[in-house]
Design a binder for these strands. Structure first.
Lengths: 191, 191
DNA sequence: TTGTAATTAGTACCTGATACTAATATAAAG
DNA sequence: CTTTATATTAGTATCAGGTACTAATTACAA
């Protein structure tokens, strides 16, 4: 045994897996140094273990986290309000983009659709602030990134501070979503 | 030569910035094709604009959010995943902040609650990508900004690629949300 | 027409690999 | 001790997606 910290093959490969699992940003060269073996050994190990090369690993991590960066925090109304009759109806449009979708399938994540619908429903009732009490929603077909979602909201009934709003979202004449929202208007003194 | 879609330098560089801003995963070659110029022109543009090469861009995206997600694999999740049994159940925590709430009432907007629930539901099923098919949700009481929302998801039934997941969210022992999600798993194809 | 900016072409080199061949070291078995 | 199997190392050619640089060509405006 020449070099001090030398491990058995199986042992090394297990540690390799662990190591790359919580730090994918390591080159073969780094690994070779770490395990006191040649770079070729590391490559054989990766081959046997089915671990992709550094650049692939980094790319995967990047893709995975990419969508998350642009989340839907903060925006008052999601989509562009293009028509509004307070207390009656409203229309909003949301152009979907790749960052709203799953990278692999290009299908827009549900909460973006929901958010457009809910925020339109809230805009449409004639009250300063509203809270969604109950809602019953259905996604009818997937939305592709790039699709333009047209949401139409209609106030169907008002009982006290409860507002019943139906929202339908279409993409090119095809309905992709419908939802029934019961929104509770809150008066400022209420907590 | 007057190749059809040719733009002025300034124009092209502006579009280049925009383009890379919401999709950093593009090679110089792709860009050259897109703008009908040579690869060298693109490289001059990047040089002038101080845009790093593809691999650097990808690496930055990967590093940006890496620390946050490192423990769990494949989670684009809203909130922090603190427990997960794939295919069975999961728990996530989301600390709400004022920017998630209505400024007047300090009440957290519904779609943040929904998003936490939906993304937890998606995390919990043992499939790479899922699409929310139908969901039935109910907000039980308002959430104040600053509240810590604890979401618990449970897979109650699996039929083919349909996964029925119940999610409950609590704030200090009080249930504030419940939802039944039917998630449709999509089998991943290689990219 | 001429001068300048913009674009293109081409070369050498870089990193972090793959894919392959061949040689050598080490350990176990006969 | 020798043979054999396994593990490791060495070395070469090739790749993608670049950098860095030089030189030539094209576009356009004065």
């Amino acid at each position: 045994m020449k070099t001090t910290g030398r491990l058995s093959k199986a042992n090394r490969q297990q540690k390799l897996l662990d190591l790359l699992d919580n730090d994918p940003f390591v080159t073969d060269e780094d690994l070779a140094d770490k395990f006191f073996v040649s770079i070729q050994t590391i490559r054989l190990d990766r081959l046997e273990l089915g671990i992709p090369e550094l650049r692939e690993r980094v790319k995967k991590v990047a893709e995975k986290n990419y969508q998350k960066v642009r989340s839907i925090v903060g925006t008052e109304i999601i989509g562009e309000l293009i028509d509004l009759s307070l207390g009656e109806r409203g229309i909003s449009i949301l152009e979907t983009t790749p960052d709203m979708a799953f990278s692999k399938t290009n299908i827009v994540r549900g909460h973006h659709i929901f958010s457009q619908a809910e925020s339109l429903a809230m805009s449409v009732i004639d009250a300063e602030v509203a809270l969604t009490g109950v809602s019953n929603i259905k996604y009818l077909s997937p939305v592709q990134a790039g699709d333009k979602m047209v949401a139409k909201a209609e106030v169907v009934r008002v009982r006290g501070n409860k507002h019943f709003v139906h929202v339908k979202i279409h993409v090119n004449q095809n309905q992709v979503f419908r939802g029934k929202f019961i929104l509770i208007a809150i008066h400022s003194r209420e907590v």
